[in-house]
Each structure stands twice: as structure tokens, then as C-alpha cells.
Design a protein around this nucleic acid. Structure first.
Lengths: 238, 238
DNA sequence: TCAAAAGTGTTATCATTACACCCATGG
DNA sequence: CCATGGGTGTAATGATAACACTTTTGA
């Protein structure tokens, strides 16, 4: 029992909420099955204890890779959950990270620390360990909010995608039945952040134009348009 | 030396970034002067260690009150800073909270744990302890972003305010020289979340209408308009 | 009657919405 | 030649930006 402190200290963990989009444009979340107490056999978010010499994000990436094999993904800090009592083992403060991946490009393999790892459609998520259901809800809310003002949706799609795929992605994430095709296209193309990169092959209908997201142009626009944006003044969306 | 654990644990602290608006519509931040090592005599964000039986937000409110006397303010979690090395005493993970207050309604008194507590205009903020400059930057960025899509600016104003005050507030926060008065008014009034509550008295010019923010109506609009908003589909602002 | 700030009218321009229609491909 | 998505034309409506103007007060 080697580590002794003058005052009590909480444990600090990271948890990862990984969203992915499958071939049929369905939004899924990556869960692991716990193989130790507490909550043995329950499904949970991948995560674990932060080491003393690694940053929080490094910890999140390490745990994600150890438990699911997934690496090199877009990731950002979501929120820190610290209610006393959220973990039966004692005071545990968890920094949650959320990540987006293109499901087809990331093979999942259950690994050392976890019994199993699987993608779940959002409607099929089982009862989760700890307060992980709450964390998942927060992540979903963040995804829905963020997708409206930052081009993060592209992280979920393959590098080359059609406008219909992109539109479906937005419909899925936002949970709206169907946006107007005409207007969606006009809007998204007018932004000027998509690049034509070829056409679909061998499809039983008019082949769609494939696009890629032009990150450089987006950054450039951010610089250029920011000033005007500010000029608009208030907004608060509603 | 009573607290012993099998694995090493980081310390967890909270830090508060409190923004206030003074009589002359200037944006200020509340800092304390440290009276102990490390960084004795340096200015820093109010904050301190999280107790084992309090939530993170409770800890933030407690420290804020202890160190500055400020209480009952709008507060939300900002971000968690956890780079190894950010505190010379060892691994310290800090959950930052940011808060908005109407400066005239909150008296500041340096208290037990802090040598002194004072409001600083943003341009006059001295060198800060730890990575607090970075935390302050993050808070400012959040304030600027958030004020555009949520009516949090009202937290900085007195309960009754004029449209000119509100406009100045936005100009201050966003750092734009001067919005168009006509258009600002049209926009903000069209939203329907302001209530007329009387007129200015004894001013050497046409007395302005005073308004209050109608929170109930705002919540109602959120419910009502959310569906249409979603129908609009993509946006990502730019 | 003047300075100072409040507050309004109006127009040109641009963005958004809604709906109907045509196009290219493989089976 | 048809089913299946891909893709376009256009007009009515509403929001935004720009600028000049009038109003009310205390000193």
C-alpha cells in the first residue's frame, strides 16, 4: 500500500463516447462489456484510470485503444462528471471524451481489459453501468448541437461521400424526417467547403457526384468570414 | 499521514472564472492574490481542492464564496485541465467553472484563504499563477461563442436595462466597434423575450425604455421553435 | 435652445422556402 | 423501358443591412 497522502483524494478516470455511422447510415455507439466488479457483465463506456504522467486526452486515447482497438479518431473533451456516489468504489471523478469515427474504417476488437466490445444502435443500447447512460445522453446532446455550427459530421463519413449521404447523416443526427433536397444542396454547396472528387461507379441509377470536405478552405473561411459574422451581432438562435 | 491508496492519485481542484460588468459597461474578471506557495503573491483564479463529499459545482461555489465572498451566481462547467506539470506541487487536475455576475450586485471581500480579491479589466490582467492565463482565455472564448446562441448576456446586466446597455454589452463581449442601432433593436425585440418594465428617470436626454429578460417566454420559445429550427438542417454558421 | 441619447421609416439586397420537374444509369 | 436515386429552375416570401431622420429630456 505504497501511496500515502495528507488529505483524501478522489480517483480520476476517463470515459469515451464513440459514435460511428455504419454502412446503412445508422448512428451507433461503441460499448464494452465489463469483466470485473462493480457492474460485472454490464455494458459500459470504454474508459479507465488516468495515469500520473499522461494528459487526460492521452488517457482517453490509450483506454480506447486498449479496450476496443480503435485509434486515430477525432476526439474532444465533453464534460467532467463528479457527483459523489456515482461509483460504488468510492469518489471517482470521470472526464468524458467524445469521438466520431467512420465505422467502416475502424475494426473493433475486444481487448485485454474488456470482455467484449460492440457497436450498438442508439435505440438498442442496454442498461449501462455507473452513470454512463447520463454521459451518453450528454454526448448525444453535444453531437446534435455541435453538428449545427461546426463541420464535424464529416468525421463520421468516409473520405468521399455523396450529398445524399451527407443529407442522411444530418437527418439521422438531428432526428428530422427529411430535409428538402434542393435546399440542402444549395446551402451546403454555397458554403464552398466541398470538393468534387469523382463520381459513383456501377450504381443502378444516375451516378452521384462524390465530394470530400475541404478542411483547408474551411479554416480559411473561418478567418475571412469571422469579422462579418461578428458584425451581425446577436443571434442566440432559439 | 492518514490516506493510503494502492495506486497513486492526482489531486482534483476547481477554478472559477468570474466575469462581471461594471457601471461603465466594462468587462472584468475576478482574481485573488495568493498568500501561500506556490506562486505566493501572484494573482490567480479563485479555486481550491474538491472535498470528498461535495459535487464539483458545489466545490466551485464554496471556494468562490470562501475566497471572494461572491455567491448565488450563474455558473457552468467550462473545461477540465489536466496536463501533467501544470502545477509544481504534483499532478493536479482542475475542473474550471465559469460564472457571470452583475458586478454592482456583488460585493467582493478578500477572505480567509486569499490575500486579496479584485476585479480586473481584461486588458489589465497581470501575469497569472499556474496555467490560469490559458484557462482565462478558454473562458473568454466560451463566453464569446455562447453569447451568440444563448441569452446568457443578461446575467451580466442589472435586472432592468436599456437596449443601449444591452447593445453595448454585446459590443464589449464580441469586441466589435459598433453594431447598427436600428438593426440591433429590430432583431432583439422581434425575438420577443424582452419585457417593458418602465422608463429611465432623471436623465439629461430622452429617457429610455427599461426592459427585463423574460426567461419563461424564452423557455417557451425554445420548445415551440425547436422543431422549425431543426427543419432548417445544416448551418454551421461560419 | 442645445447637447445627448432614444427611437423610427424605408428601401435595396440577399437568403430561405416550397414545389415541380428533368436526367442518367443498370437491370 | 422502367425503377431508382441524382440533380436543377424558379418564384414568393421573409430577413438583413444601410442610412437618414424624428423625439424627448435636463441643463
Amino acid at each position: 500500500m505504497p501511496y500515502t497522502y495528507e488529505y483524501p483524494r478522489p480517483s480520476v478516470t476517463v470515459d469515451c463516447i464513440i459514435f460511428g455511422l455504419d454502412d446503412s447510415q445508422q448512428l451507433k455507439v461503441l460499448l464494452i462489456q465489463r469483466n470485473s466488479d462493480p457492474f460485472v457483465d454490464h455494458w459500459a463506456l470504454p474508459g479507465g484510470f488516468v495515469e500520473m504522467d499522461e494528459s487526460l486526452e492521452d488517457a482517453a486515447r490509450r483506454e480506447l485503444k486498449e479496450e476496443t482497438g480503435v485509434e486515430n479518431v477525432f476526439m474532444e473533451q465533453l464534460y467532467t462528471f463528479g457527483m459523489p456516489g456515482r461509483d460504488p468504489r468510492g469518489r471517482v471523478i470521470s472526464v468524458a471524451y467524445f469521438a466520431l469515427v467512420n465505422l467502416s474504417e475502424h475494426t473493433v476488437k475486444a481487448d485485454t481489459d474488456a470482455g467484449d466490445a460492440r457497436w450498438f444502435a442508439l435505440e438498442e443500447v442496454p442498461q449501462l453501468a455507473f452513470d454512463h447512460a447520463e454521459i451518453l445522453d450528454a454526448a448525444l446532446a453535444r453531437l446534435r448541437a455541435k453538428v449545427r455550427y461546426q463541420p464535424i459530421g464529416f468525421e463520421l463519413l468516409p473520405a468521399h461521400f455523396t450529398l445524399s449521404q451527407l443529407q442522411q447523416l444530418y437527418e439521422t443526427i438531428l432526428g428530422v424526417p427529411s430535409l428538402n433536397k434542393r435546399n440542402f444542396r444549395t446551402r451546403i454547396l454555397k458554403m464552398g467547403v466541398l470538393q468534387e472528387v469523382g463520381r459513383q461507379q456501377n450504381v443502378a441509377h444516375r451516378p452521384a457526384m462524390l465530394y470530400s470536405f475541404d478542411k483547408a478552405k474551411y479554416e480559411e473561411l473561418l478567418q475571412t468570414k469571422e469579422p462579418d459574422l461578428l458584425k451581425r451581432g446577436v443571434d442566440f438562435e432559439i
